[in-house]
Design a binder for these strands. Structure first.
Length: 187
DNA sequence: TGCACGATGAAC
DNA sequence: TTCATCGTGCAC
């Protein structure tokens, strides 16, 4: 349940991915599976702006894999990368915009075992795989919640990681992280 | 039907 | 810097 009304509403995601990427910092990613709750504080994100953004998967058009990205906001876009790691995004803006925010690192809060620095490790530690693809993030069992104890943070902007193939888009400052946080995947 | 290549992570 | 490992997307 969500007695405190802490689950972020769909309207939160129905906005510019840059805003969503910045505002997700400090919030909690929560997943309940098999009676076990896992939660972590989001400390690093990347924004993918849509089909015009050559670093975004949606730049290749609407395909079976990117279908979720083209769908309504507030859903999880999870895919397998390098044949062995999973990456999780939250879909942003209205249906058809195909923008999203990649979750790159978490600060462990509850039920987290392994490391959470980096998108692949984040998914592994949370137990997120392709079975989560397309899931509605207003679900009490899988959502992002407001911070329990909001604090002042300083946001650092950097180029996105691993998208050198995207030409000038690789230089855009679309990666965000909480300054000084020890769980950042890299500076 | 085949093939090159990742929004990564770990080892050397 | 190299490599593991396999689903996607696109060229034949």
């Amino acid at each position: 349940m969500d007695p405190a009304g802490s689950i972020l509403p769909r309207a939160f995601y129905d906005r510019d991915p840059v805003l969503v990427a910045r505002e997700l910092l400090g919030k909690q990613l929560v997943l309940v599976a098999g009676g076990v709750e896992r939660a972590g504080r989001i400390v690093e994100t990347e924004a993918y702006l849509g089909p015009h953004d050559l670093a975004a998967h949606s730049a290749r058009g609407r395909t079976a894999r990117t279908e979720v990205m083209f769908g309504p906001p507030g859903h999880a876009y999870v895919y397998l990368i390098y044949g062995m790691h999973h990456c999780m995004n939250v879909v942003t803006q209205s249906e058809g915009q195909a923008s999203a925010v990649l979750l790159r690192a978490l600060e462990p809060l509850r039920g987290i075992g392994g490391h959470t620095r980096g998108p692949g490790l984040l998914c592994k530690a949370m137990g997120i795989d392709r079975a989560c693809n397309g899931r509605d993030l207003t679900d009490p069992a899988f959502h992002v919640a407001h911070s329990e104890a909001p604090e002042r943070i300083v946001i650092v902007r950097r180029p996105r990681i691993g998208v050198d193939y995207a030409g000038h888009w690789a230089k855009r400052l679309l990666r965000f992280y909480i300054r000084g946080n020890p769980y950042i995947s890299r500076e």
